[in-house]
Amino acid sequence: MKDIAMKALYTLISLFVILNYGLLLTGTMARVRAKVQGRIGQPVYQPYIDILKNNFLRTSIYHGVMFFLGPVFRLAGGLGTYLFIPVIFGSTIFSNFAFSGDLLLVMYFIFFGQLGMALGAGQSGHPYSPIGVSRGLAQMTAFELPFALAVISIASQYGTLSITGIVAAQQGGILNWVAFTNPLAMVAGMISFLGMSMDNPFSIVLAPQEIPIGPPTEMNAGFLGMLQTNRAIFNGAKLVLFMNLFFGGAGNLLVMVVKTFLLYFYVVFVGASFPRFRPDQSIRFFLGIPTLIGIAAVVLQMV
């Protein structure tokens, strides 16, 4: 009983840390992007105010029962992704619910939120929502391929599907990181990470100009606040996952912050430098060279 209570407490602490970290990171990166464009940019704490404001709205509208499932599934997907990733190697508080096959579950949960969103967006009846959802799912399927190949390559390299195991195998110096022992898998994974972050070259899913805001077109007030909360958690979870898979994990919070910041910075760097792909272009892009790199990574590990 005491173990369960302690675990619940640790989970709450872990969630609290990643939520705030994700929000601050989003605010900081908006600021970085503003500097690239020569602006001052929004305050770092703007994401907090936006969430607060959305939850303080007096009215809210929903379109049927399924509409609730969109944000709920999304949040469940974000939480699920995060809660099965060990954030800090060797820490009891931040090990979350890591177990021997957690990598597969995490990959499933990354997809899960978008599927739930499809239900909610479809129920809203707004024609732009299904367009956004179909674009999102198509792009997601495309970037899932190089990512899955990279994961297969790492799994066969270390003979485990446990993230903790993969992190443990990378300990003992920078040269033990997957980024150096299996660079092809790292390249394939990092390219699919760009798609997963939905930053600029692959941001057509959210497309604030072409199709109003994509899947969450009809989401308002609390629903939108929930989606924004999820985006912060999901962002943090993805960053931690890629840090664990390719860059040796983190021994303490400071290392985690530095590594994930640099990872996110790489996404923003690419996003600020490149224009957008159309959905068909981005799908063709992911199914091209990144997939070939991923196959090469798998083949090199297998032979």
């Binding site: 908006a30 602006r39 929004q42 305050p43 604030p208 109003p212 805001i213 077109t217 989401m219 308002n220």
Partner: peptide
């Protein structure tokens, strides 16, 4: 944006 103002494409 520095005043916390941003455009939003949908009235919802």
């Amino acid at each position: 944006y520095r005043f916390g103002i941003q455009p939003r494409p949908t009235p919802r």
